[in-house]
Design a binder for these strands. Structure first.
Length: 109
DNA sequence: CGTTTGACGGTCC
DNA sequence: CGGACCGCCAAAC
């Protein structure tokens, strides 16, 4: 069998490795996979909804720790509640203690 | 096959 | 602080 691994499939793999209660950024994943563009990660996440395997897209935020992708979820508040459910504090659409919860694939993987 | 799009990032003002 | 602009690159149209 030939598995044509697209760039976003690699993204899924990394994002699924994000530990519970932790978050990562588009830029970090893009840099780890050497995509060269953080936009590719966001695009991959968009497609992730059509994948059989669930991708914790809610654990991926932009470099400021803002929940920029919340608008693409079932509900704009879905992403925040999912993160809060993992013990992450969200305020003004931003992850509090973001630097502390930041999971860097290049560093921890 | 050219153009547009995008859940980003950085810089500039 | 926020709006404007550019770069980045693959997918969608």
């Amino acid at each position: 069998m030939k598995e044509e691994i697209s760039f976003f499939e690699k993204v899924y793999k990394v994002v699924r490795r994000v530990p519970y209660g932790r978050v990562t950024t588009y830029g970090a994943v893009a840099d780890y996979l050497d995509l060269g563009s953080a936009r590719m990660v966001g695009w991959a996440m968009n497609k992730s909804f059509g994948e059989d395997k669930a991708v914790p897209a809610h654990r991926v935020v932009n470099r400021k720790g803002e929940l920029t992708g919340r608008n693409h979820f079932s509900s704009p508040t879905m992403m925040q509640e999912l993160l809060e459910n993992e013990g992450i504090v969200i305020q003004k659409n931003t992850v509090q203690q973001f630097e502390k919860l930041f999971w860097n694939p290049s560093q921890e993987l």
